[in-house]
Amino acid sequence: LVRYRTISKIPQITLNFVDLKGDPFLASPTSDREIIAPKIKERTHNVTEKVTQVLSLGADVLPEYKLQAPRIHRWTILHYSPFKAVWDWLILLLVIYTAVFTPYSAAFLLKETEEGPPATECGYACQPLAVVDLIVDIMFIVDILINFRTTYVNANEEVVSHPGRIAVHYFKGWFLIDMVAAIPFDLLIFGSGSEELIGLLKTARLLRLVRVARKLDRYSEYGAAVLFLLMCTFALIAHWLACIWYAIGNMEQPHMDSRIGWLHNLGDQIGKPYNSSGLGGPSIKDKYVTALYFTFSSLTSVGFGNVSPNTNSEKIFSICVMLIGSLMYASIFGNVSAIIQRLYSGTARYHTQMLRVREFIRFHQIPNPLRQRLEEYFQHAWSYTNGIDMNAVLKGFPECLQADICLHLNRSLLQHCKPFRGATKGCLRALAMKFKTTHAPPGDTLVHAGDLLTALYFISRGSIEILRGDVVVAILGKNDIFGEPLNLYARPGKSNGDVRALTYCDLHKIHR
């Protein structure tokens, strides 16, 4: 019993810090008490220290592992850092350059016999395009090294910054494609005289377009951006097909006994025919423009016929181009109408809503002055909100995010209106959640004399007048207030005048 009563005193000691020596009952000389009392004092002292730490809000209350900052290894790049964003855009520009100039170089340097010394005699450094290609190869190699040090988000939505895990993730992902696209074939085969082989191998750079397509997928929600990307894709495919079309004609031209190829026909049409040795002929500019003209006309199913396939190889390629053109029509131009419709969806919704308003007016036989006010209010409210119901949009977000959005939407009023000066951010967040926005066209009466005042109004834009009878008592403008002081009276009061809008007004109100 003594032991039980001794232990039962522990909660009292913990909360009230009572010393055991003052209790005459606990001072009985028993061996059990002498053993338990020192333990009680020690526990009391420890609990006292913990309570003191909690009340003082000291940093040592938290466990040590929670006080440590997340460790980022040296030379690790955050995937959302500004440097990584700028670097990704730079790589994107280099990939676009590669997609345009690599097929052009591979096709127009394929057994090209233009006048001038061969590239091997001039030297590697004197070729501007080769120098640019070398810079692109170096940048792609540097990009691989950067990807080995860039964080990523795993399946659990955690940012991984450990170098080993980053390397394994990159090896399992895009490393092989990036490595093949970054191989400097110019340096590996330079001086061997195989410019045709170098041009063909350099087309491996186009593998990076797969990554670019995935990154550009984030802009699919913007109709104008999608339309622009589709047109660029169409032009890029036409450019690639033009390079292939020229390569076919250029390879067949020296081996044909009869002059029936499209390059021969082009030379005869523009007065620059090929001679018996295969030299001469149109310039590279004429060849490229004509090839691009043929691919565009074939892809769009126009086909004027002034550039036509004559050999079997050219006919087979033309059939493939027609098939590609039909697929592009289905996948690209078939979506253009939907994209344009999405661009004008706001206008369509406006006309639909206006039609419903006019049908309501016609069905209920609203008189002319009231009908005009109804239409003007709808037009003004639509121009202010673009038909978007803010309350319906915010309803799907958590309250903390709703408060931040409301604070942002009402920031101008909260910053410049005098009653809100000096208020804490928590108070402003709470008030912003209570605001209701209303609009009024010129001549609209917001409050009639004798109406119950259940709200306090803040003028965000425009001006109003307060009338008693036919006498203008006051004219209020931006950041002015009218209405009933909230919670100042037990019952809502009545208006002693009319409140009429002089201009288009936007008002925020808080109800009782």
Score class of each variant (00 low, 15 high):
426 G>F: 03
285 K>W: 04
437 T>F: 12
363 F>I: 13
73 H>P: 14
234 F>P: 01
282 P>Y: 01
68 Q>D: 05
243 C>I: 01
223 G>N: 04
237 I>K: 01
232 C>M: 11
303 G>V: 01
433 M>P: 04
386 N>W: 04
189 I>G: 13
89 W>R: 01
385 T>C: 01
437 T>S: 08
311 T>V: 01
448 H>E: 07
348 A>P: 08
158 E>D: 09
182 A>Q: 07
264 H>V: 04
272 K>L: 01
243 C>D: 01
124 Y>I: 11
364 H>R: 03
396 G>C: 15
228 F>I: 10
394 L>Q: 04
111 K>I: 03
243 C>N: 01
194 S>M: 13
141 I>G: 07
309 P>W: 01
101 F>L: 15
397 F>Y: 06
237 I>A: 04
159 V>E: 04
286 D>W: 06
96 I>K: 01
294 F>T: 01
279 L>V: 09
120 T>S: 12
405 I>A: 02
287 K>I: 04
380 H>V: 08
166 I>N: 01
346 G>D: 10
281 G>D: 01
175 F>C: 04
310 N>P: 01
145 L>G: 05
86 V>E: 01
245 W>K: 01
253 Q>D: 15
84 K>H: 01
172 K>P: 01
336 V>D: 01
182 A>E: 05
449 A>H: 12
305 G>D: 01
296 F>G: 01
126 C>A: 01
69 A>R: 14
178 D>Q: 01
310 N>S: 05
79 H>P: 02
223 G>H: 09
269 Q>V: 01
388 I>Y: 15
326 S>T: 15
242 A>L: 01
154 N>G: 13
428 L>M: 06
405 I>Y: 01
243 C>T: 01
432 A>V: 08
78 L>W: 06
282 P>V: 01
353 Q>W: 04
385 T>G: 07
72 I>P: 11
181 A>P: 03
309 P>M: 01
357 V>H: 01
222 Y>R: 04
101 F>S: 04
405 I>R: 02
372 Q>R: 10
285 K>I: 09
201 L>Q: 01
117 P>T: 12
183 I>W: 05
409 L>H: 01
268 D>Q: 13
113 T>A: 05
433 M>C: 10
414 L>H: 01
441 P>D: 06
260 I>K: 05
253 Q>G: 08
448 H>N: 14
98 T>C: 07
368 N>Y: 04
266 L>S: 01
259 R>D: 15
441 P>L: 10
338 A>N: 03
76 T>Q: 05
210 V>Q: 13
278 G>H: 03
444 D>S: 10
105 S>W: 11
64 E>Y: 12
238 A>T: 04
386 N>V: 05
142 V>E: 01
311 T>L: 01
81 S>L: 01
176 L>D: 01
290 T>F: 01
297 S>K: 01
138 I>W: 14
335 N>T: 03
